[in-house]
Computed example of a mutant assay.
Amino acid sequence: MIFGKAGFGGAVADFEAAVSAQDAKRSGKAFIRLQETFGQAREAELLDGGPRLAAVLEQVPPAPRAVVAVLVGACVERGADAERCAPGVLAGLRWALEQAVAFADAWAATGGGAFPAHDDGGEPGPELVERAGFEAAVGWSTLPQWEMAAVAMLNHPGVRRGAGSRGDALRLLGAVERASGLELKSLAHALLVLDDEPLVALHRASGTGYLLRVSGIGDNFQLHTLLADALIGGGHVEGRAPSPQEAAVCRETPGQVETVGSFDLVAPDGELIWNEGAPADIPVVDGVRLLVLDEPSYRRTWPAGRFFPGMRGDVLLERALDPEETERWYAHVSPAKNATG
C-alpha cells in the first residue's frame, strides 16, 4: 500500500483511511508517522487533523487509542476546535475509567498486591492481561494519557457546558480511586470546574455580604486570590489585596507570582474549606453556594496562578447584598471553628 502525502496532514489521512478500512498493518505504520510528524505540523494541519482523529478514536484499537487521544489534545492546545474534538475524547475517557474499575476489581480478586505503574500507552504486560483481561489492562495502563487528553478538552468552557456526562466520569473516577488508591488530581479538578456559578460570600468581620459569579477556577488557591482582588482590591472590605500581577496570573496571564492569603475560607457549618480543594467543595444553601470569609488564622503563602494554565478563570462581583439579604444568609452560618495545620 502506498501512503499519501507527506507530513502530519498526510499521516492523518492515511491513519483515518486505514482505521476505517480496519487495515491493521497500514494503520500501524500511519500511527508511527502521526507521532513522528506532529512536531513539524503546520497550523492548518493541526486545525484539520484534531477533529478528524477524534472522529475515528472509537475505531482505533484499545492500546494505541490513548496516544491518539493525546495527539488530539495537543492539536486542541494549538488551536483545533475543542468542541468538535471533545465527544470522541470524553467517550474514550469513560471507556478507560470503566475498564480501570474492572481492572481494580480483577486485581483484587486475583491476589491483590501493589497496583502496577502506568505505562506510556503501549501494550500492557502479560501479567496484567492474565490477571484482568486485555481491555481492562489497557484501560488501567493508559489512564494518565486519557487524563492529559481530557483536561485539554475541559480547558474550554464550551466543552464544559456541553459535557453532560461529567457526572458519570466523576463517579467512575471515584470508583477507581476507592478500589486502587489512584488519584488523578488534574482530571478530578477539571471535571469539577464551575462556570457562571453564583456564589454568596459573607465577610464576617464587617458583617457584609456579596453576590459573585465564578467561572473557570481550577482550585481554591486561585479562587482565594480572585476573591481578595474583587472584595479587598475593589475597596469593599479591609485586608491585604493581591497585586495586579497576582490577580492577572489567576485570570489568564501566564506564570506564577508569590502571594499571601487574605482570608480563611469557611463553610456555613464553620469548617474550613481548604485552598487545596475546588470551588465545588463550597456547600450549596438554598440553591446557591455559600462561603464565609474570616480573618486569616495564620500567615500562608503560595505561588498565585492557575491550576490549569490553559483555562481562563475569573470571579466577578455582581453586587453587594443589602442588609436584609445579608442577615437572611447569616441565619445559615455557624461560628467559625479553630483552624488546624
Rank of each mutant, 00 (worst) to 15 (best):
S180P: 05
H224A: 00
G164L: 12
G218L: 00
R213T: 14
H189C: 07
G167M: 01
H189D: 10
G162Y: 07
L211E: 14
V159C: 12
M148P: 04
S141K: 09
G216N: 11
L192G: 07
G158L: 11
A190W: 04
A188D: 15
T142A: 04
V151N: 04
G207T: 04
L211M: 09
A201V: 02
A188W: 09
G216L: 06
S141I: 03
L187E: 06
D196Y: 12
L199E: 12
H203L: 07
R178H: 13
L211N: 10
E183T: 14
G162C: 13
S141M: 12
G158E: 15
P144T: 14
N220F: 02
I217H: 07
L192E: 14
A163E: 01
T208V: 08
A169C: 14
S206G: 11
M153I: 06
G209E: 03
R161D: 14
R178V: 13
L223Y: 01
Q222R: 13
M148A: 15
G162F: 03
L212M: 13
S141N: 15
H156C: 02
H203K: 07
L173H: 01
G218V: 02
V193C: 04
P157V: 06
R161Q: 13
L154K: 10
S141A: 14
H224I: 01
H189L: 05
E183A: 14
G209I: 02
H189A: 09
G164A: 15
A169F: 12
S165M: 07
D219W: 01
N155C: 13
W146Q: 10
S186N: 14
A149R: 02
H203T: 09
A149P: 14
H189M: 08
L187C: 08
T225I: 08
L192C: 12
S186P: 08
A163G: 08
E147R: 15
K185A: 13
L192P: 05
A150I: 03
A163P: 01
A152E: 03
M148T: 15
L194I: 10
A179H: 06
W140K: 11
V151P: 03
S206D: 14
D196A: 12
Y210K: 05
W146F: 11
A190R: 06
P198C: 08
T142F: 01
A179N: 05
S180Q: 03
P157G: 04
V176W: 05
G181S: 11
G162H: 10
L223P: 00
N155A: 13
D196G: 11
Q145D: 07
L212K: 10
S141V: 02
V176S: 02
G207W: 04
M153D: 04
A188H: 12
D219M: 00
H224P: 09
L182G: 07
L170W: 09
L192I: 02
L199P: 12
